[in-house]
């Protein structure tokens, strides 16, 4: 299974629903894996993959929303489609606001499910690309020495070299060297690109590092 191979996870405690979705999507050619509970899914599924999760909101044990939150926390690039009952639409809407791709009200037509999954898969590709890029950038960031990281934080604030030298109590020339290395190592050419990268890969704040 390659890194980019797509997968569909189905998490539903109703066996019939779960199984039928499995059949449906299998028939469409998706590689499908099914789970009877959120706990099972989080424990045994590969989460850092390209694909989507069909997640029932009401589950015995962990609820759908809890599973979704856990997924988000793990930085999984999986796209989530909720299955909701008649009374849970508001929950589904909230979940969508939090970043879920969408929701399907049970009972849903098989065509709608199919179409939604197809769209979610396309979304999942993009998401996975962004996830992969970010992972690459984070790797690049990790190649920076701590001093370089410190300098990078200062550069991001838009401070001139002199000032950075004063803050870090180092020589201006040294600052210049570090700045050049940062740009080089991260493959960037200006401060704006650095800012975007740091924001995208969610570089931990400076003082956190300073604590080390």
């Amino acid at each position: 299974m390659s890194q980019t191979e797509q997968v569909v996870y189905v998490v539903d405690d109703d066996e019939a629903v779960r199984k039928s979705i499995y059949y449906l999507l299998t028939a469409k050619g998706y590689p499908v894996r099914e789970f009877a509970s959120g706990e099972d899914f989080l424990a045994s599924a590969a989460l850092q993959r390209c694909g989507c999760v069909v997640l029932d909101l009401r589950l015995g044990g962990m609820s759908g929303l809890q599973v979704f939150d856990a997924l988000r926390a793990s930085g999984s690039p999986l796209v989530t489609v909720f299955l909701s009952g008649h009374g849970d639409i508001s929950l589904a809407v909230d979940a969508t606001k939090k970043g879920a791709y969408g929701w399907l009200e049970k009972p849903c037509k098989d065509s709608l499910l199919r179409d939604t999954i197809a769209l979610a898969m396309r979304e999942a590709e993009g998401a996975y690309k962004a996830y992969s890029l970010k992972a690459e950038q984070r790797k690049l960031w990790q190649t920076l020495t701590p001093r370089e990281q410190q300098v990078a934080w200062q550069i991001r604030t838009g401070a001139p070299n002199k000032r950075i030298a004063q803050v870090l109590s180092i020589d201006v020339r040294t600052v210049e060297t570090h700045r050049a290395k940062v740009y080089y190592k991260l493959g960037l050419s200006n401060t704006t690109e650095l800012d975007h990268l740091m924001r995208d890969v969610e570089i931990p704040p400076l003082d956190e590092l300073a604590g080390h």
Binding site: D14, K19, S20, I21, L24, P107, K109, D110, L113
Partner: peptide, 12 residues
């Protein structure tokens, strides 16, 4: 549930 399931199974 069974209805939905049946729809899905049928489609599959």
């Amino acid at each position: 549930q069974p209805l939905e399931a049946m729809g899905n199974f049928a489609s599959a």
